[in-house]
Write a protein that binds this DNA or RNA. Sequence first.
RNA 1: GCCCCCUUAGUUCAAUGGCAGAACAGUGGUAUCGUAAACCACAAGUGUCAGUUCGAUUCUGACAGGGGGCUCCA
Length: 588
Amino acid sequence: MNTEYSQESLNAMRHTAAHLLAKAVLELWPGAHNAIGPSIENGFYQDFDMGDVTLTDADLPKIEKKMKEILPHWEKFAFSEITLDEANKLFSHNPYKLQLAEEFAAGGKKLLTNDPGNFLDLCKMGHVENPSKELKHVKLLSIAGAYWRGNEKNNMLTRVYGTAFPTKEELDQYLWQIEEARKRDHRKLGKELDLFAFSDLVGPGLALWTPRGTLLRQLVDEYVWNLRYQKGYQRVTIPHITKKELYERSGHWEKFQDDLFKITTREGHEFAMKPMNCPHHTQIYARKPHSYRDLPQKYAETTMCYRDEQTGELHGLSRVRAFTQDDAHVFCRNTQIKEEVLLIWDIINTFYTTLGFDNLRIRLSLHDPLKMQQYLGEEKLWRATEDQLREITRERDKNIVEALGEAAFYGPKLDFMAKDSIGREWQVATIQIDFTQPERFDLTCINEEGEHERIFMIHAAIMGSIERFLSIYMEHCGGAFPLWLSPVQVALLPVSEKYISFAEAFGKKLQSSGIRIEVDSTNESVGKKVRNATSLKVPYIIVMGEQETTSDRISVRVRGKKEALTIDTNTWISHIHGLIQKRSLLLE
RNA sequence: GCCCCCUUAGUUCAAUGGCAGAACAGUGGUAUCGUAAACCACAAGUGUCAGUUCGAUUCUGACAGGGGGCUCCA
């Protein structure tokens, strides 16, 4: 976005703005304490313990005004190193700073203070040289609650978010992006395009899909299945509940405790709704002995999973309590891992490229050696599997980032990240290697020597969760789905009642060739019908009246265009068939 | 779950401590219309449960639902 300023200087600017915010709030509310105030990806925040005071968005302009008053008096930050004793004196009023000072001292870190003129704070370096000159385009954005140090056992603090940019243009651009994201929020689009709904009676986090929305789900899912089918996957089906024992064996009962929806039968037996499918799938594999010749076994299933997420974590379709995984598990020998991983990788590439996500970023998610207790399996096996995965990825790709502590509890994984049309990045597909569950369920094949050989599992979700994926995709294309995904591809608008049956006949013709159409037979003006179809973002609108009954040409209005074009009917039909077949992102 | 904010018709938004108003959508009519809103009429609502009050949609509380956040670390 900006070439003149490095990320470092942006951070300095924002971090300085956080200090300024702290000073302003403390002046306005002398009883408040500032906690931490770092720069973050697109701005900064500052946490406060406001005591009995409640900040609201209405206070933001007041705070901004105060900041502007203070800023001219700020000069270069004066730094000094202090002892713990000095810190205890200087910050005796602020329990948060005291706690930090103590921790830093115990951790052997130097204690640093800084002061731009009238505000001494405990803080490491990283400010702009001359605040009153360099800090120009600062904007406070919102207020939220946040736990002290991110831990829900701690005090809830008041967090003020803001951002700062070197130029007004960049600030405006950022504010525009926020506004744009708000406009194409999938929760809004879901209502407007009639794709999904929620019901207070059914409950939070439980999305209900309309006919249009269901079509959309079905279309993306069929596409994923097509790609899988070509790579030798087979479909399986499992029930959505299971006895507790399955999850005790897999390790999920313990690791997933809080998130499990549990059921007790009338006889007192404990069951659970499935939060994932792998344990069930292992039992399909385990139904009989397998020869090495039959491997890999590749099971795919699109099925709903249930997790008892905290209500506060729920969000539209991106975080729900019942979600549909396009799940697959490959049961294979160690020697087959590489090929299978690469095959899944191909599917992911094809799928995301087709949908218009060009450059997926890939992350190799590894275990955190310092936190072995949160994983299942021996560290030796973790290391070996991670090395293997690393080697595979090196051969294939380019800019792979490694991330410690991002692994699943049963094994390392490759995570794929997509950037959407307004620049936000989302984690989408994932390939996970699992050596833990084959251990736990004692999954083997009979090898060439006639011995039982431990096998591996690969978890492969292309979309991950259809709900989450579609929420990302709706926002990516702003509800204007590509032709092949549009629930209604062509809207036929009879000019008046007289032409309804003509339009219906034409519609039948399109329909029988596999095109999804809708005839608008309401008693409305043509202008109104065009308006309605347009706001539903239907790719093609065709007005039908006297002219069409007497000629082989139709008048087609393409989504995004104001002018209709007149074209030979059959030429047009075969043209759009071509676009659908290619899964084209373009309409012309 | 926790902190803060919000909740008026299917949707988007008004108003009020004393009869709740509009637009779109819906229904019924009239018009039979050529590319972003024809006309008339009808129907429809203060999330739930308590409290304060002569009277509550409005004030208070609880619950439910929704929103912004809660892994960026002096």
